[in-house]
């Protein structure tokens, strides 16, 4: 298991005012990882992703992305935020949205090259949304928009893909297709998936970490009830609807 370490967090603390959001988080993301991070709302999941992206500066601790600062190597990270779209009437086509992902490579003022367009074409093909490229982004369904936002993250050919609550508001059939897509993408990049939906995540990811200000990471998918309890600070039954062992694989 000598795979390259892509992201490393060492004893990372983040405060918003006097409130600690992340408390001494250690995390290591390696190539081909498909890591699910679960935890309650307000537990710091989005903040953790923003720390990796360099959008939030930790109060203390070390963050390294591909051996350097997040700001410098952010271009190797693809990011799909939670609820990316607010205005359904926004005047922008799917094609234009996907090209946004190439801005970092293109630079200020310059126009998109043929390479950029080829990459956008390929990314839309990967998420099976090429037929929709001229549609207005706000007119697509939630699941379709989501795939476009994944294409936007893929178009810069990232080494790490960060997904924040990607399955919110998406029906089960679409979710299944979504996880099939992740399984394919995993061949060429590390994926970190953040969600409060334990049951869906735990079936499809390889590794799980639980985050509630502190990160409980065991490198394997088998999360015992005691860890879940520590994460959620409430009886596991409440989260798992009374069948705690059905949350994870039968064991």
């Amino acid at each position: 298991m000598a795979s390259e370490e892509l992201v490393s967090l060492r004893d990372v603390w983040v405060y918003y005012g006097n409130v600690a959001v992340l408390e001494g988080v250690n995390l290591s993301i390696k190539q081909h990882d498909l890591l699910g991070i679960i935890g309650p709302n307000g537990g710091g999941k989005t903040t953790l992703l923003k720390v990796i992206l360099g959008l939030v500066k930790p109060s203390s601790g070390e963050v390294a992305v591909l051996g350097s600062t997040p700001q410098r190597n952010r271009k190797f990270i693809g990011y799909v935020a939670q609820n990316s779209l607010v205005d359904r009437d926004f005047p922008m086509s799917v094609w234009e949205v996907v090209l946004m992902g190439r801005y970092g490579k293109v630079g200020l003022i310059k126009r998109f090259s043929d390479d950029d367009k080829k990459a956008a074409y390929k990314a839309l093909e990967t998420v099976e949304m090429l037929d929709y490229k001229d549609k207005q982004i706000g007119r697509l369904s939630g699941g379709e928009q989501q795939r476009v936002f994944i294409a936007r993250a893929l178009v810069a050919e990232p080494k790490i893909l960060l997904l924040d609550e990607p399955t919110t508001g998406v029906d089960t059939r679409v979710q299944t297709k979504f996880y099939e897509l992740l399984a394919r993408l995993k061949q060429s990049m590390a994926i970190v998936l953040v969600s409060h939906d334990i049951s869906a995540v735990s079936i499809h990811v390889d590794k799980i970490a639980c985050l509630n200000h502190r990160l409980y990471y065991h490198g394997s998918k088998e999360v015992g009830p005691e860890i879940l309890e520590a994460t959620y600070r409430c009886p596991v039954e409440m989260i798992a609807h009374g069948v705690p062992h059905r949350v994870l694989k039968e064991h």
């Binding site: 959008l55 990011y79 935020a81 922008m92 946004m100 970092g104 003022i109 936007r152």
Partner: peptide, 18 residues
Amino acid sequence: KEFLAISFDEEFSAVVGV
């Protein structure tokens, strides 16, 4: 293209270095 990007999604724009 930059004005379009920041109008649509400031956070993502920041991530890709705009």
